[in-house]
Amino acid sequence: HNLTITQGKLFFHYNPKLCLSEIHKMEEVSGTKGRQERNDIALKTNGDQASCENELLKFSYIRTSFDKILLRWEPYWPPDFRDLLGFMLFYKEAPYQNVTEFDGQDACGSNSWTVVDIDPPLRSNDPKSQNHPGWLMRGLKPWTQYAIFVKTLVTFSDERRTYGAKSDIIYVQTDATNPSVPLDPISVSNSSSQIILKWKPPSDPNGNITHYLVFWERQAEDSELFELDYCLKGLKLPSRTWSPPFESEDSQKHNQSEYEDSAGECCSCPKTDSQILKELEESSFRKTFEDYLHNVVFVPRKTSSGTGAEDPRPSRKRRSLGDVGNVTVAVPTVAAFPNTSSTSVPTSPEEHRPFEKVVNKESLVISGLRHFTGYRIELQACNQDTPEERCSVAAYVSARTMPEAKADDIVGPVTHEIFENNVVHLMWQEPKEPNGLIVLYEVSYRRYGDEELHLCVSRKHFALERGCRLRGLSPGNYSVRIRATSLAGNGSWTEPTYFYVTDYLDVPSNIA
């Protein structure tokens, strides 16, 4: 807008934040220059609390790290170098490059900038070799853009010569660093050979998330399962459950009422301010606690030095998902009996873990797994792929695949051998790939016309006998059925096997 004052003059007093240069501009645009008398524009009460600059400061050096910015700028000295009290560095987070010096300023003089007072450097006698002032900004957020400017702080001049310097606002972004852990990993099994893994992005990506790394490792069953005799009275049979499938998407929606109208769909109840505040506090606490764990609990591995020492970490090797089922080394339970199943799973520490690289999504279907087997899954978020990966501390989750139908069934015939004193040795093959492992066998036998009897055969007993022995049988026709019990439950009964026990007292003698 054009402003013209045809008559009258300007009068400025007691404006401590208004620089004289701005008042002189007002004289020019209003056409009143030359009308004012000496005392109409006070030299001592206008701009006496402001830094009124008329020179431009330029930054000469900028260096960044993930949490620091090192700045240096060209030296500046007023005509009387004693008038320079120091520099004021202003900075704040700036997602967009549209910041002005006066953003967030209120009537009390406060604003949204963080201000650092910096002492002037030592003055050199040689004007050509003056030290460049600077400042190291610490405690910054990774991968965050900051708006920065600097200006001088000078003393009051009796001659009211307006001098000083100020830089333009520059924008500097800190470097990326390792992201925080992925949030809320959930693993479920939808079949006997697959596990579905879902997660949420890290709360602090500290860069642009480029991919996720998912490692999985087959877990050995508890050692007590191999040692305890679950045929003993009072000892509860062990059981394991597989990871249940995901709930429906509708039930997972946030901010939804727990109660549904019987007449149909209901609208979600909005969260109160107290609920939102509580969630923010919980989120802040979780982030602080995660940072504490990362800094205190997890110790970084030592990389190899120039002395030739090897990095103890196993090298990563990509495998196809079809090879995942046989990740671990199978060892027989008892070496003397080769027909026992290889369900003991000690994992070799030198073995390469299978892994998958996930790009542009937060889910993965891990296939080719062994049925009813526990897996430990390790999830890392990465925001750099080359020249070397920059990934987060791992988040861990466990899951067990679903049982395989008929995996616990005894394959092959049940054979028998009759000894003296009416002892019958029953023999059968253990299931080759049971659900988890076989903890015991149930032997059901009966003599024709009598009630059915049951015998429990422990895992250890089966390994020693290759089956079991029935003792003290009365003469007669017998039928026997056997079924295995694994961590997933009972298998199917075998087809009945028949044998006849004679009275050993009636056996004919070869003595003449």
Rank of each mutant, 00 (worst) to 15 (best):
S203Q: 06
N206Q: 04
N206G: 05
G207A: 07
G207M: 11
N208E: 05
I209Y: 00
T210H: 04
T210G: 08
Y212P: 00
Y212R: 03
L213V: 08
V214M: 04
F215R: 07
E217G: 06
E217P: 14
A220T: 15
E221R: 09
S223H: 11
S223A: 14
F226R: 14
F226W: 04
E227W: 11
E227A: 10
L228I: 12
L228A: 08
D229S: 06
D229T: 05
Y230P: 02
C231P: 06
C231L: 06
L232P: 05
L232G: 12
L232D: 08
G234S: 11
G234M: 10
L235K: 04
L235S: 04
K236E: 04
K236L: 08
L237S: 05
P238W: 10
P238F: 06
R240Q: 13
T241A: 09
W242S: 09
W242C: 04
W242L: 04
W242G: 04
W242P: 15
P245F: 13
F246T: 10
F246G: 12
E247S: 12
E247D: 10
S251L: 13
K253V: 06
H254V: 08
N255Q: 07
Q256Y: 08
S257D: 07
E258S: 08
Y259I: 05
E260W: 13
D261H: 14
S262H: 08
A263Y: 15
G264A: 15
G264V: 12
E265F: 12
C267Y: 08
C267K: 03
S268Q: 12
S268V: 08
S268D: 07
S268G: 15
P270G: 00
P270I: 04
P270F: 06
T272P: 04
T272E: 04
D273V: 15
S274R: 11
I276Y: 07
I276F: 04
L277M: 12
K278A: 11
E279F: 03
E279Q: 04
E279K: 02
E279R: 05
E279L: 11
L280S: 09
E281Q: 13
E281P: 04
E282M: 05
E282L: 05
S283Q: 14
S284Y: 00
S284K: 06
R286F: 05
K287Q: 06
K287S: 04
K287T: 04
K287E: 01
T288S: 04
T288D: 05
E290Y: 02
E290R: 04
E290N: 02
H294T: 02
H294Y: 06
V296I: 04
V297K: 05
V297C: 02
F298V: 02
F298G: 03
P300D: 12
P300C: 06
P300M: 12
T303E: 14
T303W: 07
S304C: 06
S305G: 04
S305D: 07
G306V: 10
T307P: 12
A309T: 03
E310I: 06
E310Y: 14
E310R: 09
P312L: 14
R313G: 05
S315P: 10
K317L: 13
S320L: 12
S320Q: 04
D323R: 13
D323K: 03
V324W: 13
G325R: 04
G325D: 15
V327W: 15
V327P: 09
A330D: 04
V331L: 11
P332Y: 06
T333D: 12
V334Y: 13
A336Q: 03
A336F: 09
F337G: 05
N339W: 10
N339C: 07
T340Q: 09
S341V: 12
S342I: 04
S342P: 06
V345T: 10
V345Q: 11
P346K: 15
T347R: 00
R353I: 15
P354L: 12
F355R: 06
F355M: 09
E356H: 12
E356K: 13
E356L: 11
V359I: 10
V359L: 10
N360R: 12
N360L: 10
N360H: 14
N360F: 08
K361T: 11
L364E: 15
I366E: 05
S367V: 09
L369C: 12
L369Q: 05
G374E: 08
Y375D: 01
Y375G: 08
Y375F: 14
R376M: 01
I377H: 03
I377Y: 13
E378V: 09
E378K: 11
E378H: 12
L379E: 00
L379Q: 02
A381I: 02
A381F: 04
A381K: 09
N383A: 03
Q384K: 12
D385E: 13
P387G: 15
P387Q: 13
P387M: 14
E389V: 11
E389N: 14
E389L: 11
E389T: 10
R390N: 04
A394M: 08
A394H: 15
V397G: 15
V397W: 06
V397T: 03
V397H: 15
V397L: 15
S398N: 13
R400S: 08
T401E: 01
P403G: 03
A405V: 09
A405K: 12
A407Q: 14
A407V: 11
D409L: 13
I410R: 02
V411R: 13
G412I: 04
G412F: 07
G412V: 07
G412L: 10
V414K: 02
H416E: 09
F419Y: 14
F419L: 13
E420Y: 13
E420D: 08
E420P: 14
E420S: 03
N421K: 13
N422F: 15
N422K: 14
N422P: 02
V423W: 07
V423Y: 07
H425N: 13
H425C: 06
M427I: 08
M427T: 11
M427S: 13
W428L: 03
Q429T: 15
E430T: 06
P431T: 03
P431I: 00
P431A: 12
K432C: 09
K432P: 09
K432E: 07
K432S: 13
E433R: 13
P434M: 08
P434D: 01
L437M: 07
E442N: 13
V443P: 03
Y445R: 03
Y445G: 00
R447M: 05
Y448H: 07
Y448G: 00
Y448I: 13
E451S: 12
E452T: 07
L453S: 06
L455K: 08
C456G: 07
C456N: 03
C456Q: 03
S458E: 04
K460Y: 06
K460P: 13
K460I: 10
K460L: 08
L464H: 08
E465R: 12
G467Q: 07
C468F: 09
R469K: 07
R469A: 10
L470T: 02
L470V: 15
R471D: 07
G472A: 13
L473K: 02
S474K: 10
P475L: 06
P475C: 09
P475E: 06
P475H: 11
G476Y: 00
N477D: 09
N477V: 06
N477K: 13
N477R: 12
Y478Q: 09
Y478N: 00
Y478L: 01
S479T: 14
R481S: 13
R481V: 07
I482C: 05
I482E: 01
S486W: 00
S486A: 13
L487T: 05
G489D: 03
N490M: 07
S492T: 07
E495H: 11
E495L: 06
E495V: 06
T497Q: 05
Y498V: 11
Y498Q: 06
F499A: 04
F499D: 00
F499P: 02
Y500G: 06
V501E: 01
V501Y: 11
V501W: 02
V501F: 07
T502P: 10
D503E: 11
D503A: 09
D503P: 13
D503V: 10
Y504Q: 13
Y504V: 09
L505W: 09
D506L: 12
V507Q: 15
P508S: 09
N510A: 15
I511F: 15
